[in-house]
Amino acid sequence: MSENSLAIRKFSDLANPTRFLALADRILPWLAALAALFFAAGLWLSFTTEGDYQQGETVRIMYVHVPSAWLSMMCYTVMAISALGTLVWRHPLADVSAKSAAPIGASFTFLALVTGSFWGKPMWGTWWVWDARLTSVFVLFLMYLGLIALNRAMEDPARSARVSAVLILVGFVNIPIIKFSVEWWNTLHQPASVMRLDGPTIDPEFLRPLLVMAVAFTLLFFTLHIAAMRNEIWRRRVTSLRRQAARHAGRETLAP
């Protein structure tokens, strides 16, 4: 038990907010540069490769749609792990991580929904269908927005952390539903073609730009996430400093 808690203390010591800030300062420029590089390559690839004989030009939508959809799930997974961190290990940064990931996740989910809709209109002839995959992603979007609203509604971050962590973990059941919805139910949405046990079924012509874009989006996510975490730490420092200022205000001016 004591060994365990010692290990935890070391672990959280490594990631104490001040160290995290120093680390973030060093990492962020590199991460941002790398993301920009991958984006440049990805965009170039996605506009130079050929269109699909069946889907025509619209296949290019895939290069933004699939990475954002993938990120919408990954971001929630990151939040769920952070929520575990808050509840089980009481890690000081876990709740910062969960809180700052929510708006980013919501944005990418929004992007996945909108680009999917732009893809669906020419392919299926409709902007939206209530099939399992689309509906579950929409539910994910609503969950993100709900979590943001919850975080904003509570003044004290220490208290809101536990509550939203519980909610995040409960909501995690949606992630496997999204992932496997295309296999469990027979729907309009095409089944997974990249992440399969028997290897990707997608043509390498499309796979290359898709993978590059996926890497670029992932790098972008981590850049934004770390920067947002840094902002959140700063925000809490400002809050605590202000409370400190409020406690001291009026004493020195009134002291005889």
Binding site: L142, G146, R152, M154
Partner: peptide, 14 residues
């Protein structure tokens, strides 16, 4: 913080 503007839209969507 705690304002109703966002909650309304969220409720509408839900």
């Amino acid at each position: 913080a705690g304002g109703g503007a966002m909650i309304g839209v969220l409720f509408f969507m839900t």
